[in-house]
Design a protein around this nucleic acid. Structure first.
Lengths: 247, 247
DNA sequence: CGGAGCGTTGAGCAACGTCAAAAGACGTGG
DNA sequence: CCACGTCTTTTGACGTTGCTCAACGCTCCG
């Protein structure tokens, strides 16, 4: 763990936490203790450990990961982007059932549970909003279950990229046709429940179809409309700030 | 909707709500307005609808269901047993992203959101416990995503039956080798992401393997240890009351 | 008696996994 | 700068899993 001094007023509200009002955000920042820096590949929290703090991601990409019994690989059940709480579930639950893994180098705000407890008692609406944020996670889990249960390889990967695109846009505030993609084809395989070999073939099909192109380190969206169509993507489940989501 | 008079002191704490203390339970029962009876097959709540109440299941079986785009079938992302809140997520979120479907005839306690809001303001610990209950749902969603992404047909169905068995045991308070199973093979297909034809073949394999037997209307567990082994089942993700779950 | 829904089975095919080999990318140490 | 090891990507070949279509029997219920 690396500790750094932090000026909370410098941290920007982005992504999912834009659901919080500026006042709620400032209140939350007031109890942040320090910034935690984690390198790519590090397991930030291991399943079953008792946690006395939660982490708010400000830079980088994180996966929630469940190890497959008897196999080397694991299955991803969600990706976390800047502006997401990566393990707020551990605040009420105390223990997590899954691992939290840094896919790229990450910066995280550390929020102590006792201080959060006191803060919520004083700001009941903030508490309800944090509850909502964890339920958006649940909605995303449902979507992942649906996607990996009922969509074929090509649609599955296309839908996954659409989610990536939409969430990234929510972080930066604008759509981009090129995303820095700090994940490997093997990561995509873990997220979609396909083998990495099959992911590679699906990526070729998507490229030849003119939807998108994955080069080492970046995802190029060639035709967003086509990609959305191939992946039958509807972003309602993301409850994105600024959409007609009602939180 | 059918309305019935209700004596809250008659309703037993069972299943997941056993996480609530008797005092919390009584407080919750004090704001129940009436009992809602729903027939098998009825869509109790449709996705996107704005809800001003949540439902606590006391009898029957309910599925959370996401329609597949462009297909007749849908995908189940969780089953709800007696003692579960079926749509408490709608309390903070206001709108659900999925349908809630009665698989069998059901009885449900109707809890108004405004009254719940007031109750939680007076009992902050109850609020936190309800938050926890929704996060157990999230944990179950994660498990379903993992199961349907990374397990093969036979293991998938076996694991599903293990969950059914464990949750049913949590409701009745004892393990049973025969479960009334008010669901069809097509329902099992929707829950596991397989085709109903393939489910039928997997059930034959499980029967010939001596694990379990599905007859119309009932699941017979022939060898629980074998079933758990075939499904690589570990119930930790259920955070069952009475286990070492820490809520 | 007839229809509707469910369970069962077979045949053929498409999707996907596994194994293996080789080439490219990248960092490290010499 | 090059040599080396490691990780990733790519491709082929082959086997398996699981889907689709189709037909038929069963049960329940009108």
């Amino acid at each position: 763990m690396t500790f750094q001094s932090i000026d909370p007023t410098e941290i920007k509200r982005m992504g999912m936490v834009k659901h919080l009002s500026p006042d709620q955000w400032n209140a939350l920042m007031s109890i942040v203790e320090h910034i935690d820096v984690q390198p790519a590949g590090r397991i930030v929290n291991r399943r079953g450990n008792r946690l006395d703090h939660s982490l708010l991601l400000t830079e980088g990409l994180i996966a929630r990961s469940i190890p497959r019994s008897g196999q080397r690989r694991s299955t991803f059940v969600a990706l976390e982007f800047p502006g997401d709480f990566v393990d707020l579930h551990a605040f009420p639950l105390k223990r997590l059932d899954h691992d939290v893994v840094a896919l790229t180098d990450c910066k995280l705000l550390v929020i102590n549970h006792d201080r959060l407890h006191a803060l919520i008692d004083a700001h009941t609406e903030l508490g309800r909003m944090l509850w909502s944020l964890t339920l958006v996670d649940a909605s995303i889990h449902r979507h992942w279950a649906m996607r990996n249960s009922s969509m074929r390889g090509l649609a599955r990967v296309a839908n996954f990229f659409c989610e990536f695109d939409a969430r990234q846009a929510a972080v930066t505030g604008q759509h981009a046709d090129i995303h820095k993609l700090g994940i490997t084809q093997s990561d995509i395989a873990d997220a979609t429940g396909l083998s990495s070999v099959h992911v590679n073939r699906v990526l070729r099909d998507l490229r030849e179809d003119g939807c998108c192109e994955v080069r080492p380190g970046a995802l190029h969206i060639l035709n967003r409309q086509k990609l959305v169509s191939r992946g039958a993507f509807d972003p309602a489940y993301l409850y994105l700030p600024g959409s007609d989501a009602v939180l």
